[in-house]
Each structure stands twice: as C-alpha cells, then as structure tokens.
Amino acid sequence: MSIQHFRVALIPFFAAFCLPVFAHPETLVKVKDAEDQLGARVGYIELDLNSGKILESFRPEERFPMMSTFKVLLCGAVLSRVDAGQEQLGRRIHYSQNDLVEYSPVTEKHLTDGMTVRELCSAAITMSDNTAANLLLTTIGGPKELTAFLHNMGDHVTRLDRWEPELNEAIPNDERDTTMPAAMATTLRKLLTGELLTLASRQQLIDWMEADKVAGPLLRSALPAGWFIADKSGAGERGSRGIIAALGPDGKPSRIVVIYTTGSQATMDERNRQIAEIGASLIKHW
C-alpha cells in the first residue's frame, strides 16, 4: 500500500482519535458579512469528516447552483462504474471539434489522439474542462443518470439537468442544476469515506481534487503551510461562485467545507476574496 493510499485508508482512524471539535460562531459572522459585502445569498456548511456531524452552517438547506462543483460527483459516478466493471479508466475516447464547448483548455489539445477516461476526469476536476465533463456525462448516460446515481446514494436534493455550459445559467428560483450545502457536503463525505467506492477509487477521487489547479484564489489562499486540501470550485452566471473541499491540518483532511453564493453584482475577484476570507476565519478558529 502506498503512503497516499495509507493516508486515505486511515482518515477515519486518525479522526477518531482527534480531540473533540467545537464550532466557532466567528466564522458564521464572516459568512454573514460576506453576504453584506456581496449583496447576495451565501450558503455555508462545515462537517466533521469522521462523524458527519454538522459543526457550523448557514442557509444549509437553500438551493444554490452547483456550477462546476458537480464534476466531482460526476467522476465519482464514473469511478463507481469502474468498480462495477462497467468502465475502464484506460479506455480512450475520441471526439471532434464539434464536441468542444466553451472553456476546454485540455480537451482542445487532444482532438487528434483523444483522451482516456482517467485523463478526462483529471481534466474535468483539476482544470474544470467543460468538454471533458460533457464527454464523461455521455459515458454514464447524461445528466439524468448522474441525478439517479445521487438518488441511489441517498441524495434526493442534488440534481443535474443540463450539460456544460448551460448548467451554469443560475436563474433565480430555478431548481435545475442545483444542490443544497448540506446535501453536497453529505454526498461528498460519502464519496470520500464511505463504502460506495473502493479504496482505490476513493484515493483516485481525492487525488484529482488535491491536484486542483484553478481554485488557488479561494480556500487555498488562506491555508497555512502543512495543511491538506482537496477541492473543486465552480463559477456561473449572475454572480455565482462555489467551492467544495476536504481539508485539515497535519497533512490530512478532517472536515468537509461547502460554500456557495449566487445573485451578486460583485466582480469575480471580490467573490473570490470573500470566500478566501471565510476560509481564513475557519482556519483561525479551527
């Protein structure tokens, strides 16, 4: 067993022997301040990774656009098919120029040779490549099948209805392509620590998230040296922004954090800054 596999296998073990965790309302004060600064709703939840206990939450059962955070769930569904012998990570998928959609920095470079399922998941999570996500959605049967996968996990809230990039439209009061912070946090925890996926697939999923290259201005910008984070960000229309993450000190994750916002007129930089400040408060009061 590799060191990384050992780390993920012992996530519940280490967490069980940690000192009790206590909620700190100071972080919620910052979440509410972010709402004021952005002029928009902000949803927040913080779960203990081992027990699933909610440590703090704000608007945990209000719907927010998922945006690209759905790509972690998508690759979880792909990995479940791999575990069941219905898919192979090494299978190569070929596609054409007509398949390319807006923001496809990886797939646009491989029109000639195609990409493997493993490479597509890596591109979808680490670079948020939209064509990679659409190609992977095709392998599982489309958005409705991802929703069905989530329902089978016990998540009857999260739903995907459309493809990239239309799913980022974020129309107010439109339930399409949305989740709730509580539902997303619980589902992410199941994917990373539950028995739904094999140990190898859980490790692969967290490795992809740990290698995320496009979430630097968010929670990662607030992390002290030595902290662990595996995350996936999302951005959408109407001032929408979000991030889902597993993080913790001492090089291992111990909490799940989900943050979503929508309806702001603020710039992307300002949305990023507010999420980073929430992260800084979380870490300060850990």
Rank of each mutant, 00 (worst) to 15 (best):
D250L: 07
N130S: 06
W208L: 04
E102Y: 10
R273E: 06
E166W: 13
N130R: 12
S80L: 05
D177G: 08
A211V: 02
Y95W: 11
V257F: 05
G236H: 01
G85A: 13
I125W: 00
V101Y: 05
A245P: 05
F70N: 02
S281Y: 13
Y44A: 02
I229K: 02
G154D: 13
P181H: 11
A124Q: 05
T158M: 02
P172A: 10
G52Y: 03
K232E: 14
N152G: 13
E26C: 15
E237Y: 05
A235L: 02
T262P: 05
G154L: 06
M184T: 12
R92Q: 08
P181F: 01
V214A: 12
H156Q: 05
V157W: 06
G52A: 12
R202A: 09
T138E: 06
A183I: 10
T69N: 05
A132R: 02
K71H: 01
F149T: 04
G114S: 06
I275D: 13
A276H: 11
G263S: 13
M268N: 04
I93A: 02
G239D: 10
T27A: 05
K232L: 06
V72L: 05
L120A: 00
G248V: 10
V31K: 11
P172Y: 14
A170S: 12
E61W: 03
M153L: 05
F58K: 00
E87G: 14
A215D: 13
N173G: 11
K213F: 09
I278H: 14
L89W: 06
E210D: 14
G263K: 14
G216V: 09
D33S: 02
E277P: 12
Q86M: 06
N98I: 06
A225G: 07
A170I: 09
L218D: 15
A170L: 09
A225I: 03
E108T: 01
P105T: 12
D33W: 00
R118N: 01
A40P: 06
V42W: 15
K32C: 11
G90I: 10
A211L: 03
E237K: 10
K144V: 13
A170K: 11
H94R: 11
A148Q: 07
T126A: 09
F149I: 04
T139G: 05
I278K: 09
W163I: 09
G239T: 08
W286P: 04
R41P: 06
L137D: 15
R220E: 04
T262R: 04
V257R: 01
R238N: 00
T186P: 09
A222E: 10
H110A: 09
D174A: 03
A246N: 09
I125K: 00
L218W: 11
D231W: 06
R189T: 11
E195F: 01
L146Y: 15
A222D: 11
S264G: 06
S221T: 11
V117R: 01
A182I: 02
D83Y: 03
W227C: 12
G248H: 07
K190A: 15
T27G: 02
E195V: 00
K213G: 03
G154I: 00
I229Q: 03
P165W: 03
M180R: 10
I229E: 09
T112Q: 04
D207K: 09
A245S: 10
H94Y: 15
Q265V: 10
N272Q: 12
K213E: 14
R92A: 03
Y95T: 02
S128P: 03
K109A: 12
K252L: 09
G43H: 00
S68I: 01
K213C: 03
I259Y: 12
A182M: 13
S254I: 13
N152T: 04
A183K: 05
T116A: 00
S264V: 03
L111Y: 00
H285Q: 05
A77C: 00
Q97P: 14
P25W: 09
N130F: 00
A148C: 10
V72W: 09
V31M: 02
R59Y: 02
L89G: 03
R238K: 12
I54K: 14
M115C: 02
H94I: 08
A77Y: 00
Y95Q: 01
R118I: 03
K190F: 15
A34T: 13
E102N: 15
R159F: 00
G154W: 11
L150W: 15
P253S: 11
D99H: 15
A222M: 03
W227P: 01
S128G: 02
R176Y: 09
E119L: 14
G242W: 02
L192A: 09
A124L: 10
V72C: 08
I243W: 08
K30F: 14
G154A: 07
E270M: 15
M209Y: 13
N173I: 04
E270L: 10
K284Y: 07
E26S: 14
T138L: 03
I140R: 10
T267Y: 07
G263T: 15
L223S: 12
D207Q: 10
E108D: 01
T178Q: 09
I229D: 07
R255V: 09
G39M: 15
T112G: 09
T107Q: 00
W286A: 06
D99K: 04
W227K: 03
T187P: 14
N50G: 11
M180Y: 11
I45M: 00
R238F: 01
H285D: 01
A77K: 00
Q203F: 00
G52R: 06
A77M: 00
